[in-house]
Nucleic acid binder design. Structure first.
Length: 1024
RNA sequence: GCCGGAGUGGCGGAAUUGGCAGACGCAAGGGACUUAAAAUCCCUUUUUCUUCGGAGAGUGCGGGUUCGAGUCCCGCCUCCGGCACCA
């Protein structure tokens, strides 16, 4: 110890900040608000307050955002930096059920604990803005936003959400009609696709519908609606489960109870209406590219065509398919329906009925997850019926198979086994015809492969070498080349290797595949070497348009390349009225209800007269009623209806309709955990507002407006790359459409911190050894019994015994050391392993800082501060100020800390630092290690906190070096170094370089062919 | 399978984006101060050869472009993350 008593210092400053409201940031119009400053909204992903408390991953992002916040404050910004809790959710409820405590109680206890932990780090949050999604005054507005969704529809004409009343007005005026499927459509209706398909187009006037029908039409257009959807239903737990909560065996993750797939009426949010905008607006945000790609993939836009296939002998009845490759229609040799497809029963022939029924029944009992994991092998059954390929006119069989999903496209496909890997597998399995309609434009480029085992590889290879005459493609490969082909894998690349050698590509044995480009003789060679091996053409996958291909046997498009062929075929099917261009998305509507207690109640009642009715704004909040027994109803019967826990609260359930005042019952489901986190960043802006979710003037200030608005910096883990960020964007866009916010996107800039992993040690039996129990020796890691352990880097988890608790680290070294360590580990966005043995290094650095500025009282060592103004230290300080500022802006904290260490080392070496220099250094350190910085600042004679002191500035002029050292290379090898004036001319530099002894001997007697001088960098002399 | 990201000393990682590879920290070894330990300070630490002057090799592997490649191009391997029969 050197007098650096971090425990006392950190406590002291945390209390000071709290008592002085150092980080309270007033809103525009409030006392103390400075309108002249620019604004910065720095947001963290708020934590779920679990009983386990914080793990070391949380403070990683929080420290980064805190550094930026503190830096920006010193740079003269109004900084909004809030924190709160995402406190609804399953674990609290589960714990409550098991221990008989109310979830509110556990939640509050957990919040208190996690807040205590967060506060230990000294983060500069404005705690006056703290929220929790379980606060009644918070979820009141979650319910209010839900009602905005409920009371809106998506107007395709305006490409925007509009109040549902506008839809009703348009329907009543006859501006919109209702089509056969209950959709509001423009009047007069343009010739609809159903008309093309032979269904008479009967568009109805809204006024002619019954009351119930009218209500159904309206409800079908709401952004929040109820629908029968397939769910994972667990009667024992009395609830539906998310896919992630179902095991591979079709059991519930908790309890191991059977789970059934069942259609249940659930609340859905119409996120699909926003698919296009969610996709397009990814372009306007500053997010990491991988996250953008993940969102794009999740939305999954594809374009192609819908095509109708007539059923043979079916009186003109058709099956509609969606395909991204209508250009392969000539190769469609069979069709497949999803087991749930409504036509299955109708078209199945008598002979096939038993088999089909059995298959469909089997498929119905599988969960999505089953289908996903088990169905590596294709299964299916023939219906006995045939369809007519609309372009070739031939009859093709119709099959039922579960590799076709009901939820995507039309639930039916045309199968092109020659050019789609899945269709190909299925066709091979059931011996269905395969007709190639694409070939390599250039024969020599045609690719073939054989699958080989290691011993076969050698056999083949020997054959290649010995019998080159068998295979002209191989002629010219010399023995020297051959040698470098080893079973470990070495490639021969036709593009860059000797061009005289005919093209052949050999891929590694490890992929168990040899791939040949150019076919001549390969098949003969292979069968000669290994008679049981077969050369197969590589299937051309349909998802990518491979422009090196051309069509054969496809009358309309022969000779075209796929890009052009696809465009032409879409035109063609539209001309012939066989189908039309179509776009599909993978994105599905969002299943929004849960049969649980600990969530936001829906502000909805069900009334016999009025149907599903939203509460009035003045009836909010609808509080979650206190209950003693909130466990869901359990049953052994898969047909048992779901009974959400709220159903037991009869007094609460039975109410009156806000519309007709007649008897009504409340909605019993609650919202999923995502709901609260969809909009919390807006509530922070104005957390105490009881009139609105947020004052628009306040939102305008902090969020800005237009495409470049939104939260200025949002930091969090990549585990929320899709769901939370997509849901939030969706809600925000609805709010934007309805005029409640003025930016199209919620988060202008996003940054993902990497995962903090941990070293995991296992003994010879594979049993994990706790990190605390291992012993490091020179040649490895051992357990207490002296057994050598294997080491690997894995996620932190209890079962791997590699979890690090931040409390322990802070207790031993303090928060500043912890913060520095996590920032010093490596780049913020990279995943990196925690290594407790590295932590003392950062602690030592802070002690050196302390001794530099405050001295070491215990060892009677004074601070290094004196009046000796050293120019080198001054220059180093200016460099440091520049470097740290730039690194913080770029979130490169690891190199900022390294630079500070270098500076401190330089000061000790020089033996001096002035008071003024020490002050500037302390300010530079402050964003990263705020407690020690505050204490030293005070010791330097300042009464006030440094939190709002201006960040030091640097002078470019001081940074300019008068001389530079340049490496001198001869033929690219460094021979010497020279020191020249920074402004030396090329001639001068060359003259000095050539005069250098080592260089001179290197070029002596040789011809100088090129002289390269890069000023300030290096010199290279090329000689022959 | 598809889509991302990454591979640099014993370890975590630097390298102004094509210009001195290994900054900074950890660990290890040696030394100083101490009765001793801790703490602190100094030196060594990519690797091979060495006549101790130095010489060679080196950023997952094989090639290429360039005066010059960790960085760019082609091909491959491994690890991590995400998606997963999306027609």
């Amino acid at each position: 110890m050197s007098g650096y008593d971090f425990t006392a210092i950190e406590k002291k400053w945390q209390e000071y900040w709290q008592a002085n409201g150092t980080f309270c940031q007033p809103n525009p119009g409030e006392e103390g608000f400075d309108a002249n400053k620019p604004k910065m909204y720095v947001l963290d992903m708020f934590p779920y307050p679990s009983g386990a408390g914080l793990h070391v991953g949380h403070p990683e992002g929080y420290t980064a955002s805190d550094i930026v916040s503190r830096y920006k404050r010193m740079k003269g910004f109004n900084v909004l930096h809030p924190m709160g809790y995402d406190s609804f959710g399953l674990p609290a409820e589960q714990y409550a059920v098991e221990h008989g405590v109310h979830p509110r109680e556990t939640t509050e206890k957990n919040i208190a604990n996690i807040e205590r932990q967060i506060k230990m780090f000294g983060f500069s949050y404005d705690w006056s803005r703290r929220i929790a999604t379980t606060d009644v005054e918070y979820y009141r507005w979650t319910q209010w936003i839900f009602l905005q969704l409920f009371n809106s529809w998506y107007d395709p004409e305006a490409n925007s959400a509009r109040p549902i009343d506008e839809l009703i007005a348009k329907l009543e005026s006859g501006e919109l009609l209702v089509d056969l499927e209950g959709r509001a459509v423009m009047a007069p209706l343009t010739e609809s696709f159903s008309a093309i398909a032979g269904i008479p187009s009967v568009d109805l006037k809204f006024g002619e519908l019954t009351h119930e029908e009218q209500r159904a039409v309206i409800d079908n257009h709401r952004l929040a609606y109820m629908a029968e959807v397939p769910v994972n239903w667990c009667p024992k737990l009395g609830t539906v489960l998310a896919n992630e909560e179902v095991t591979n065996e079709g059991k519930s993750d908790r309890g191991d109870y059977p789970v059934f797939r069942r259609n249940l009426k659930q609340w859905m949010l119409r996120i699909t209406a926003y698919a296009t905008r969610l996709l397009e607006d990814i372009e306007i945000v500053n997010w990491p590219e991988p996250i953008k790609i993940m969102q794009r993939n999740w939305i999954g836009k594809s374009s192609g065509a819908s095509v109708d296939f007539e059923i043979a002998g079916g009186d003109g009845e058709t099956i509609r398919v969606y395909t991204t490759r209508p250009d392969t229609l000539y190769g469609a040799t069979y069709m497949v329906l999803a087991p749930e497809h409504q036509l299955v029963e109708q078209i199945t022939t008598a002979e096939q009925k038993a088999a089909v029924d059995e298959y469909v029944a089997q498929a119905a009992n599988k969960t999505e997850l089953d289908r996903m994991t088990e169905a590596k092998e294709k299964t299916g059954v023939f219906t006995g019926a045939f369809a007519i390929n609309p372009i070739t006119g031939e009859q093709i069989p119709i099959w039922v198979a579960d590799y076709v999903m009901m939820g995507y496209g039309t639930g039916a496909i045309m199968a092109v086994p020659a050019h789609d890997t899945r269709d190909h597998e299925f066709a091979m399995q059931f011996d269905l015809p395969i007709r190639p309609i694409l070939k390599q434009r250039n024969e020599d480029d045609a690719r073939y492969f054989v699958e080989v085992k290691a011993d076969q590889f050698q056999l083949l290879w020997d054959a290649f070498v010995k019998d080159q005459s068998l295979c002209p493609a191989l002629r010219g490969i010399g023995a020297g080349n051959i040698d470098s082909f080893t079973p470990e894998g070495r490639t021969y690349n036709p593009d860059v290797d000797d061009p005289n050698i005919n093209p052949i590509l050999v891929m590694s044995i490890q992929t168990k595949r040899l791939i040949f480009v150019g076919q001549t003789g390969i098949d003969a060679l292979v069968s000669a070497a290994c008679p049981n091996l077969q050369v197969k053409p590589i299937a051309q996958c349909t998802s990518e348009l491979d422009e090196s291909l051309e069509y054969i046997g496809s009358e309309e498009i022969n000779g075209l390349a796929p890009e052009a062929g696809k465009t032409r075929m879409i035109e063609y099917v539209e001309e012939k009225e066989l189908g039309r261009s179509s776009t599909q998305y993978k994105l599905r509507d969002w299943l929004f209800s849960r049969q649980r207690y600990w969530g936001e109640p829906f502000p909805i009642v069900h009334c016999e007269n009025c149907g599903t009715v939203g509460l009035r704004d003045d009836q909010l909040p609808l509080e979650l009623p206190p209950m003693d027994d909130f466990s869901p109803a359990s049953s052994d019967d898969p047909e048992a209806p779901p009974k959400p826990p709220l159903g037991k609260m009869t007094d609460w359930v039975n109410t009156t309709c806000p519309c007709c005042s007649g008897p009504a019952t409340r909605e019993l489901n609650t919202m999923p955990q995502w709901a609260g986190s969809c909009w919390y960043y807006l509530r922070y802006l104005d957390p105490k507002n009881s009139e609105q979710f947020c004052d628009p003037k306040v939102a305008d200030y902090w969020m800005g407006s237009g495409d470049d608005g939104g939260v200025d910096l949002y930091i969090g883990g990549a585990e929320h790359a899709v769901l939370h960020l997509l849901y939030s964007r969706f809600w925000h866009k609805v709010m934007y459409d309805l005029g409640h916010v003025r930016t199209p996107e919620p988060f202008g800039k996003l940054f993902n911190q990497g995962m903090i992993t941990s070293f995991t040690y296992r003994d010879s039996r594979g049993v994990c050894v706790p990190n605390a129990d291992v012993e490091f020796r020179e040649d490895g890691v051992y357990n207490k019994a002296g057994e050598k352990l294997s080491e690997s880097i894995e996620k932190m988890s209890k079962s791997l015994k590699n979890v690090v608790n931040p409390d322990d680290v802070i207790h031993q070294y303090g928060a500043d050391t912890f913060r520095l360590y996590e920032m010093f580990m490596g780049p913020l966005d990279a995943s990196k392993p925690w290594n407790t043995r590295d932590v003392p290094g950062l602690f030592r650095f802070l002690q050196r800082v302390w001794r530099l500025v405050a001295g070491d009282a215990e060892n009677d060592q004074p601070a290094l501060i004196n009046d000796n103004m050293n120019d080198d230290i001054e220059k180093a300080l200016h460099k440091l100020i520049k470097k740290v500022g730039e690194d913080i802006e770029a979130m490169k904290f690891n190199t900022a800390i390294a630079a500070m260490m270098e500076f401190v080392n330089a000061c000790f070496k020089a033996g001096c630092i002035t008071t003024n220099q020490a002050e500037r250094f302390v300010l530079v350190l402050a964003p990263l290690a705020p407690h020690i910085a505050e204490e030293l600042w005070q010791k330097l004679g300042h009464a006030e906190s440094l939190a709002h002191e201006p960040f030091p500035t640097y002078d470019e002029k001081i940074l300019i070096e008068s001389t530079v050292e340049l490496p001198v290379q001869v033929n690219g090898k460094i021979r010497s170094r020279i020191t020249v004036a920074a402004d030396a001319t090329q001639e001068e530099i060359l003259a000095i370089a050539k005069a250098e002894e080592k260089v001179a001997s290197g070029i002596e007697g040789k011809t100088l062919i090129k002289e390269i001088v890069i000023p300030g960098r290096m010199v290279n002399l090329v000689v022959k």
